[in-house]
Design a protein around this nucleic acid. Structure first.
Lengths: 226, 226
DNA sequence: GACCTGTACATTGTATACAGTATGGTGTCG
DNA sequence: CGACACCATACTGTATACAATGTACAGGTC
């Protein structure tokens, strides 16, 4: 049973619940505008409504669900407008975090990028998109850790997940998009490891902008302009 | 009784609770590292622990309190390090929101900046720092509305409040800081109203950077480097 | 037939009861 | 006298019970 797994992993049920629901949303098993009633979620995971409510607050914080007072909670819609919002913010914040990560002197942690990159390549070779994105998230977390900026990390946490929804959708539409994503990621990792902050920032901004533009038309066709 | 006031204003108790606690923290009535036990807060406002827990989640989202699992919740500390984090993020995001606000065609809303500016001047003339900051926040909200970027607004909400703590402290130390803040704000409002996005962005970034630098030493002396 | 109104139901919001864990003090043993 | 173990206590975390509200549908009226 899933609950047992929760309890083994950690005592923090709301955080684990939120994590599972995040995955469901990112990988499209929970669809846009699908309703999430507290009791249904609670029953599904074998817990009471209390931790479910807290988990849903966490998802709301990260923009994955929308709440209307006394009416309920729905999975946030995906639209080109929202996509643009997420990516304009990402350009600024990912650029900043890349710069600060590059300025870190923690060589050991930086070395970890190499392992991640090979894991990404393996996932790509196996056409395992899900694994690819999971490793990609670990790369982001590593970057955040290197930057050592808690405030920035907090803000980015609320962007990454929504961004992943769009990226995963784009991959399903056209697997080649991962190729672009991998090349970009490799270059960013290199820049950070090299320690050149300004360069890392500029490269990150440009690369995210490229991905943004390359995905934009497909997002509009799939979800509308919003 | 406070509860009655809550119920009259809105049915959303957690949001109102959070707003009140935010004020307490921003204006220093709740001090750094002061513990917030759920029961104490609940008793103080005449509600049960359930809405208090939700309110504290909201404060956590905005970085005003820190939670340690199964240990409790404390008001977030103020340090120069945290101050730097907040302001480096603000530079990027406030610049972006100013640009997007400037690009809005909503002339009626833009006209509102004039009223806000005169209210700010009045508050300054009366040396009413509290009122000054309240109006200032309204100005930020107007800018966010003009920008029309929900994602950006969500992120900035989690920065503004922490930033206000530092700004209020700085004012208490040296009221002249408001003069700088007012001039800056007026220039930003003008740039947005004029509709020149790139200019508004650059000006905002520069002005926030100026405020940052002018406050930095005082923050370190008061709270340490962290 | 369209619109309004009232009522039943589903669901969120809040309060309370219970369980589990961290902390501080006290006592005992080395 | 110091260190460790144990217990009491206070608090967070979770479950459940209760209240309030929004929604949908049925019935009635114009």
């Amino acid at each position: 049973m899933i609950l047992a797994r929760i309890q083994k992993l950690s005592v923090a049920i709301p955080e684990n619940l939120a994590e599972m629901l995040e995955e469901e949303i990112i990988f499209g098993r929970l669809k846009s505008l699908e309703r999430l009633t507290e009791e249904t979620v609670a029953a599904r995971y074998g817990v009471s409504r209390s931790p479910v409510r807290e988990a849903l607050r966490l998802l709301e914080r990260d923009g994955l669900v929308m709440r209307e007072a006394r009416r309920g909670i729905w999975v946030s819609p995906m639209t080109q407008r929202d996509f643009d919002e997420v990516y304009t913010c990402r350009i600024e914040l990912e650029g900043l975090v890349a710069k600060q990560a590059a300025e870190s002197a923690d060589i050991e942690k930086k070395a970890e990028f190499k392992n991640l990159l090979s894991e990404l390549k393996q996932a790509q070779a196996r056409n395992d998109a899900r694994q690819f994105f999971i490793v990609d998230v670990r790369g982001s977390l590593l970057t955040y850790t290197l930057a050592g900026n808690k405030t920035l990390t907090r803000l980015l946490g609320g962007l990454e997940k929504q961004a992943l929804r769009y990226r995963y959708h784009a991959y399903e539409q056209d697997p080649k998009i991962i190729q672009l994503s991998l090349d970009d990621t490799a270059r960013i990792y290199d820049a950070i490891t090299a320690g050149d902050g300004e360069s890392a920032k500029a490269m990150t901004e440009n690369l995210i902008r490229e991905i943004w533009q390359s995905m934009r038309a497909g997002i509009r066709d799939a979800f509308g302009e919003g």
